[in-house]
Design a binder for these strands. Structure first.
Length: 755
RNA sequence: GGGCCUUUAGCUCAGCGGUUUAGAGCGCUCGCCUCACACGCGAGAGGUCGUAGGUUCAAAUCCUACAAGGCCCACCA
């Protein structure tokens, strides 16, 4: 159940306070710093983006080969040119070097020399760096540290200066000389034209460019040198990695553990300042000078204003900087309770047991909650991470606005019912695999909800109710299982609870849902209720009614997590209850007593009934027509048990007029036969039996059994199997062979009897 | 380039480290408006488990390679 007292919004006062506190604390610890680095700059939104907010898309573009003139010690052209390939000629004015690979014999003699940056008078060095790919383009790279991450690294390794020629709005600045003021796209064309005119353009090739774009605005991202606030992630990631390796945090399915380790291992610092108008403001304050300008160097870090004359930084924090505190900031952290201990809610609910999440936010959110939890509270925020797949459309595509393939769960709830939607999704979400969702799939869930409702009516219509259909008298506690079918359903219930418990314990939600579904439909409805319901026009006896109500109560407990609304509604129809005793607050069921022998007997009842039904279908016997049947069983005890405990049941469910059970009765003439286990079921069909059809059917049956027998005998003939397989396994195979042989024998006898 | 996932019935998928000649839902076939439910009931058809090897008494299941499809990360200037 949800505890709505803890509903929170990240912009609430308490959480805002926690966010500010976190920033100040990390700053004090030296884990938050301001640095000039290349950031992903979105020129449209004029903000920095984290790597997670940047998508790489392929766009058609060009690869230009540009000739850089080599100069001598005096700066005079030597007549030699060094060719460089680039997709971004507009950044040439920001070049501060050219790099080649140290092993590249073509350029070895040029390393240490200087070249002239095209369209400028600047001379820059040729350096050798391992990062250069000799076989790409011209084999040499123009180094533009101010506008490329790799170049930034190369520049740093070789002490090259960093020039930035871009304005925040995507136009070129005064360092770009003649190109100042032009938009980057316009400048690109202009530079190419000028290079061509200067005979410095060696080649233009069509080329697919990997283009970084903003996942927010779609704008092409510019790597831009900019002062931003960062969190040092290494120290935080180390704690998280340790917790993962010791198993303090476990992932389900386990493969996501590796994914998480990969995320944490990267250890790249986290840019947290954003130039957006909405968010938690950075708790940085600048003193204002007399002229009204800010003294950015003399900033103070503080939740509240340090005093008059200070203005707060306009930047806000990345949304995840508040989200990563979610597991504990929602519980009152960092405020303390009265005695200096954590808030009572923290003590009660932290750490959490499980976090359920889609894999798409594993790196951006889950990993950070882990780090924040360990760093700020000293404990993991959750012990298990259950990773689910993503819901895709029925063709397997991500849902998106542009494709218009989104499926609104509220629409689906309107159409099929909330329980139907919930249940269907539960059955579909197998072990973190993506779900290809076809809305028509919700029909299955709807049908199940309907089935639950109708099944209630089988016995519910015998309950005394008031005008509002609320029960007025309590049928009393559930009696102990006494009849064969009750003992069987009690056994099946116990098995089902155990299976559901196990599945849920492993976060196998779909398996749990499927198990519940099968139990309700296949066992409760198809068999228990069919046996328990009275004949038309007759009442249900009080004991059966009490058992049915008790059983259904247990069924509803099991169903409730998957279909909360229908189950709750039915819960109140079972017996009068004091207000507040909702199913939502009821105990989860426990397995209860089992009756293995009786359950096995009932299983053979099911087989006998199935056999008769098979014959009825085969001979198109009208459902309303009562027919006779004989069941031959191997021993007296079994015959007695079947006859006494289940004779009436079989008669009813199979639509029989009479049922005879015996050990060695004479086979009825002209009868259809079906073998089930070590029993034989005969249905005399004098007059209606089609001898040819029955012979064909028996032959088919014999063939199938013979095939089975051959495979089993094949195993048994294999000496290594008999000698090396566990004894029990061999014994089972021997039994199977014996049974199959006996069945074939019986079928042949029946066939012979047909004449 | 690195990593991961998927491949089982016409469709969508289970089958959780081995053992009743492979299961479900939908669809399909046959018969039923049997007084809880036609959103239902009963009976069926349908699969050499992507390919090729290997391990084993035994492989859809474990190992290797390959093929096809998909995802994530990095990235080629």
């Amino acid at each position: 159940s949800c505890d709505w007292r803890f509903e929170r919004f990240t912009m609430d006062d308490g959480l805002s306070r926690a966010v500010q506190h976190t920033f100040v604390r990390l700053y004090t610890e030296g884990l938050v710093y301001r640095g000039d680095y290349l950031v992903n700059w979105d020129p449209d939104n004029q903000t920095v983006l984290s790597n997670e907010e940047v998508d790489t898309v392929e766009r058609p573009g060009s690869l230009w080969t540009v000739r850089y003139a080599v100069v001598d010690a005096d700066g005079q052209d030597t007549g030699e040119f060094l060719s460089v390939a680039t997709t971004r000629p507009e950044t040439i004015p920001a070049d501060t070097g050219v790099a080649v690979h140290p092993d590249d014999d073509r350029f070895r003699h040029l390393v240490g020399q200087r070249v002239r940056v095209p369209l400028t008078d600047r001379l820059v060095p040729v350096v050798a760096d391992d990062a250069i790919k000799m076989d790409f383009g011209a084999g040499a790279l123009k180094v533009t540290p101010g506008h490329s991450e790799i170049d930034f690294e190369i520049g740093r390794r070789h002490g090259l200066p960093t020039l930035s020629i871009l304005n925040p709005d995507g136009t070129l600045n005064e360092l770009a000389g003649a190109y100042a003021g032009l938009d980057r796209a316009v400048a690109k064309k202009q530079v190419v034209a000028d290079l061509d005119a200067a005979v410095l353009l060696a080649k233009t090739e069509a080329y697919t460019v990997q283009t970084p774009v903003s996942s927010r605005s779609g704008a092409v991202i510019e790597p831009l040198l900019s002062p931003q606030w960062y969190v040092s992630m290494k120290p935080l990631a180390e704690k998280a990695l340790a917790a993962i390796h010791t198993g303090e945090v476990a992932f389900h399915p386990a493969r996501w553990k590796n994914e998480m380790v990969r995320w944490l291992d990267e250890g790249r610092d986290w840019p947290i300042s954003r130039q957006l108008w909405w968010g938690h403001r950075i708790p940085i304050w600048y003193p204002t000078r007399d002229d009204g300008s800010r003294d950015e160097a003399a900033f103070a870090v503080s939740i509240d204003s340090p005093g008059a004359g200070y203005v707060q930084d306009d930047d806000v924090l990345d949304t995840w900087f508040s989200s990563w505190l979610w597991p504990f900031a929602t519980l009152g952290w960092p405020e303390a309770g009265g005695d200096g201990k954590p808030m009572p809610a923290m003590q009660a609910f932290y750490p959490g047991s499980v976090l359920v999440s889609g894999y798409d936010i594993l790196g951006i959110w889950i990993s950070r909650m882990l780090m924040a939890g360990l760093h700020f509270t000293g404990e993991v925020p959750f012990r298990d991470v259950a990773v689910t797949g993503m819901v895709k459309d029925k063709l397997g595509r991500k849902m998106s606005k542009s494709l218009g393939n989104g499926i609104d769960p509220l629409d689906m709830a309107d159409q099929y019912g909330a329980d139907a939607v919930r249940f269907t999704l539960a059955t579909l979400c197998a072990q973190g695999q993506d779900i290809k969702l076809d809305p028509s799939g919700f029909e299955g869930g709807r049908n199940f909800a309907n089935k639950l409702w109708n099944a209630f009516n089988v016995f519910g219509r015998f309950l005394e109710t008031d005008a509002d259909a609320h029960p007025t008298t309590d049928v009393g506690p559930m009696p102990d299982p006494a009849t064969l079918v009750e003992q069987w359903i009690a056994t099946r219930f116990a098995e089902t609870v155990a299976a559901v418990d196990e599945a849920l314990g492993k976060y196998r939600i779909s398996e749990a849902a499927q198990t519940v579904y099968d139990f309700v439909w296949r066992d409760v409805c198809d068999w228990y209720l069919e046996v328990a319901k009275p004949l038309p026009g007759e009442p249900m006896d009080a004991r059966t009614l009490a058992f049915s109500v008790g059983l259904y109560e247990n069924v509803l407990r099991l169903v409730h997590p998957f279909m909360p609304f229908v189950s709750e509604e039915l819960w109140w129809k079972l017996r009068p209850r004091p207000a507040g005793q909702a199913l939502a607050a009821a105990a989860w069921p426990t397995p209860g007593a089992t009756f293995p022998e009786e359950a096995a007997t009932f299983a053979s009842v099911q087989e006998v009934v199935g056999a008769v039904r098979q014959i009825r279908a085969q001979y198109s016997v009208a459902p309303s027509k009562r027919i006779e049947a004989e069941v031959h069983v191997p021993d007296e005890a079994a015959a007695e048990a079947l006859d006494r405990l289940a004779g009436a049941t079989v008669t009813r469910l199979a639509g029989l007029s009479t049922l005879r059970v015996g050990t060695s009765m004479e086979k009825p003439p002209a009868s259809a036969a079906v073998l089930v286990g070590r029993m034989a079921v005969f249905v005399p069909l004098a007059g209606t039996i089609d001898l040819d059809a029955e012979r064909a059917r028996l032959n088919k049956e014999i063939d199938a059994k013979a095939g089975f027998l051959r495979s089993v005998e094949g195993k048994l003939a294999n000496e290594t199997f008999v000698s090396r397989a566990p004894e029990a396994v061999v014994a089972v195979e021997r039994q199977k062979a014996a049974d199959a042989a006996a069945q074939i024998e019986a079928l042949r006898a029946t066939l012979a009897d047909l004449g």
